[in-house]
């Protein structure tokens, strides 16, 4: 505990970590502002203009209606279900500027915030640990605290818990800010909630409770990647090396492999992080084969769900394995 306390003090004293925290919290403030801008009710001028466009469209629709019905009748001679949409009703909403709502857009904003937040979390942890190796201060440290296992775990745990205030403040700022922004504009309810054409969609719309829960899981994900970054920093000894390796991983494995090998999707880092934070993600896998009857190359798209539990388990296993490798490296490596 003594070492952990000291490491947390060191974490708190690092200026770079404060700078990164301020940046990410600034972004968390910016996004609700953007939401507030995008969820404003239309102005009188915008409504008037939209009404004019809608009227013009309705007039054109009415003129075309007879012809449309005739063509539809003809089509139904061969296809009884043919529907040309001749009774299409023009709605003024279609001509108003798009207006964001909490139920429709708060979730995607939080999920979009996930990547920068995770990157900052891993960068903070990696820089916190790697700085000690890069400056050589670890050698001095070990002459005071020679139990390498304790030293290692104190650093990993400090990095993991050290990012929590940054993650909590930024997520709370974003979640609370989004609620306030949408509330101020009275734009909580989805525009599609009562739309008969969008029936059944309401079940997946965002609620404040769901958003808070997703935010909580995002904080846990930040802690997980911080542990990963700290362990990798012990293994690689330089922040740049850790960030470079992660960038290469994202580009090659998460990018190329994800595109080429659909079955690898459940075991990749990002999809599992998404599944954990979002409460599950859907992905599609194409299975292609020669049709036995026609001999043609036929692809069948299958929908899969990556559950939140699966995401949590995979992330936990990855972090655990890398942390153990870091521990072994720390125990055995010569310190120059």
């Amino acid at each position: 505990m003594r070492l952990l306390r000291v490491e947390l003090t060191r974490f708190r004293c690092r200026v770079l970590l404060w700078v990164l925290s301020v940046c990410v919290i600034g972004l968390a403030l910016l996004l609700p502002f953007q939401a507030w801008q995008s969820s404003k009710a239309p102005t009188a001028a915008q409504i008037e203009q939209a009404q004019r466009y809608a009227d013009e469209e309705q007039k054109a629709q009415d003129e075309y209606r007879e012809e449309c019905l005739e063509q539809q009748e003809e089509a139904r001679e061969t296809d009884p279900n043919a529907d040309y949409g001749c009774d299409y009703e023009v709605r003024i909403e279609n001509y108003l500027p798009w207006r964001q709502t909490f139920e429709d857009d708060a979730g995607s904003t939080l999920y979009g915030f996930m990547i920068p937040l995770l990157l900052v979390g891993v960068a903070m942890a990696a820089s916190f640990v790697a700085a000690e190796f890069a400056t050589g201060a670890i050698g001095n440290w070990l002459t005071f605290a020679p139990r390498r296992g304790r030293v290692y775990w104190s650093k990993v745990v400090a990095a993991t818990t050290g990012v929590v205030p940054m993650a909590v403040v930024s997520v709370a700022t974003l979640v609370g800010g989004l609620w306030v922004a949408y509330s101020l504009n009275d734009s909580i309810t989805s525009q599609w909630a009562d739309d008969p054409d969008m029936g059944g969609e309401r079940a997946v719309l965002m609620t404040p409770e769901l958003l808070v829960a997703a935010g909580g899981r995002l904080v846990v994900a930040v802690m997980a990647v911080a542990a990963l970054g700290a362990a990798l920093a012990v293994i690689m000894r330089h922040t740049a090396a850790v960030l470079g390796a992660l960038a290469a991983w994202l580009a090659v494995i998460e990018g190329l492999v994800r595109g080429q090998v659909g079955s690898a999707f459940p075991y990749l880092l990002l999809p599992n992080l998404q599944a954990w934070v979002q409460g599950g993600v859907t992905y599609y896998d194409d299975v292609c084969a020669n049709d036995a009857d026609t001999g043609e190359w036929v692809c069948t798209t299958t929908e899969h769900v990556l559950s939140q539990t699966h995401g949590g388990v995979v992330i936990g296993v990855v972090v655990g394995v890398v942390a153990l490798v870091g521990w072994l490296v720390m125990r055995r490596r010569d310190v120059q």
Partner: peptide, 27 residues
Amino acid sequence: VGAIVEQPKFFPNFSGRRNLLLLAGAI
């Protein structure tokens, strides 16, 4: 045992006092 191995290595952006406080905390 107190030791200085080659050049002293401390955290360059921390003050001398801060560096010693961390080490004092560690022991």
